Amino acid sequence: MSVIYILLTISIIVAIVFFVAFIFAVKNGQYDDSYTPSVRMLFEDELVKEKTKKPIQSKD
């Protein structure tokens, strides 16, 4: 039973370490996207081709 307490304590400590590392990486700009804004201007005004609708022919 004491092994469960030890494993639980170790897993919580490891989770806290990973959380702190994640927060540190976010604050230092590790996940900032520096590539997409420079490419977005090339594709922003892309023309959208609409399908032309054929008129419905009635049988009279």
Rank of each mutant, 00 (worst) to 15 (best):
L7Y: 01
L8R: 06
T9M: 02
T9K: 02
T9A: 00
T9D: 08
T9E: 08
I10H: 08
I10L: 14
I10E: 07
I10C: 13
I10D: 12
S11G: 10
S11A: 00
S11L: 03
S11E: 06
I12G: 00
I12T: 04
I13M: 05
I13H: 03
I13G: 06
I13Q: 01
I13L: 08
V14I: 13
V14Q: 15
A15V: 10
A15N: 13
A15L: 09
A15S: 00
I16L: 02
I16V: 02
I16M: 04
I16S: 01
V17N: 09
V17E: 00
V17C: 03
F18S: 06
F18Q: 00
F18L: 08
F19E: 01
F19V: 01
V20L: 13
V20Y: 14
V20H: 02
V20F: 09
V20G: 10
V20A: 06
A21Y: 10
A21S: 11
I23A: 05
I23N: 11
I23H: 05
I23F: 08
F24E: 07
F24L: 01
F24Q: 00
F24A: 01
F24Y: 04
A25F: 03
A25N: 01
V26N: 05
V26L: 09
V26I: 03
V26M: 12
N28E: 09
N28P: 03
N28M: 09
N28K: 11
G29C: 00
G29V: 05
G29S: 04
G29N: 00
Q30S: 07
Q30R: 03
Y31E: 12
Y31D: 01
Y31Q: 08
Y31N: 07
Y31G: 00
Y31A: 09
D32E: 02
D32P: 03
D32L: 06
D32H: 02
D32K: 00
D32F: 04
D33M: 01
D33R: 10
D33W: 04
D33A: 09
D33L: 03
S34E: 04
Y35N: 08
Y35M: 14
Y35P: 09
Y35W: 15
T36G: 08
P37R: 04
P37N: 02
P37F: 11
P37T: 06
S38D: 11
S38F: 15
S38H: 10
V39P: 05
V39H: 06
R40N: 05
R40Q: 14
M41R: 14
M41I: 15
M41K: 15
M41S: 14
M41F: 12
L42K: 14
L42F: 11
F43I: 04
F43S: 04
F43L: 02
F43R: 02
F43D: 04
E44A: 15
E44I: 15
E44T: 15
D45L: 15
D45A: 05
D45C: 14
D45G: 06
D45M: 09
E46A: 06
L47F: 13
L47I: 05
L47G: 03
L47K: 14
L47R: 10
L47H: 12
V48N: 03
V48M: 15
V48F: 13
K49W: 12
K49L: 03
E50T: 15
E50Q: 07
E50I: 12
E50A: 10
E50G: 08
E50F: 04
E50N: 13
